[in-house]
């Protein structure tokens, strides 16, 4: 029976885990979630990280910001050119009343289309890769199919 040869795999896995944890715990930006959890931490700081922010209902002085897994929040901003249902790139400051004041706001035009059309080459490349290479589940190893 063939054995799984571990080789350098654990080293790469450890490296990936380390980089991932470093990114999670040591980053210069502050997220909306961190701000809401501890408003003292982000007093006056610009929030740069939102959870897939999307424009909800638009009013004259701002709009409702929708995020995945977060309660909607009002953002004070210039609403010229905004469209409900669009994704947005946002930098904002948390106000004392819990609403946000936009510092920089850009509508991420075509983001939904970009995500959808990106699925095609991703699926195609993975499929062609699996046609070119065979994965041996006993050894956990890729082999070229055309290998003599």
């Amino acid at each position: 029976m063939k054995k799984i040869r571990i080789g350098t795999t654990p080293i790469w896995l450890l490296l990936i885990a380390g980089l991932s944890a470093y990114g999670a715990f040591r980053h210069p930006w502050i997220s909306y979630r961190e701000c809401v959890k501890d408003p003292g931490l982000c007093r006056g700081r610009v929030i740069e990280s939102f959870r897939e922010p999307m424009i909800g209902t638009i009013s004259s002085d701002g709009f409702i910001l929708l995020q995945r897994g977060e309660t909607p929040v009002f953002v004070h901003a210039d609403t010229t050119g905004l469209k409900s249902g669009e994704y947005t790139g946002l930098k904002a400051v948390l106000r004392e009343d819990g609403s946000l004041e936009a510092v920089r706001l850009v509508v991420a035009r075509g983001r939904r289309e970009k995500m959808i059309i990106s699925l095609i080459p991703a699926a195609l490349i993975v499929l062609l890769f699996l046609i070119r290479f065979r994965f041996d589940f006993r050894e956990w190893m890729f082999y070229r199919r055309n290998r003599a």
């Binding site: 790469w12 990936i16 980089l19 991932s20 990114g23 999670a24 990280s49 959870r51 995020q67 897994g69």
Partner: peptide, 21 residues
């Protein structure tokens, strides 16, 4: 979206080197 900060590394050259390795 809660895992955003955990996967930032994968979109960097260092993460690419590790994933490719």
């Amino acid at each position: 979206p809660g895992l955003h900060d955990w996967v930032v590394a994968f979109h960097t050259p260092a993460g690419l080197l590790a994933a490719s390795g």
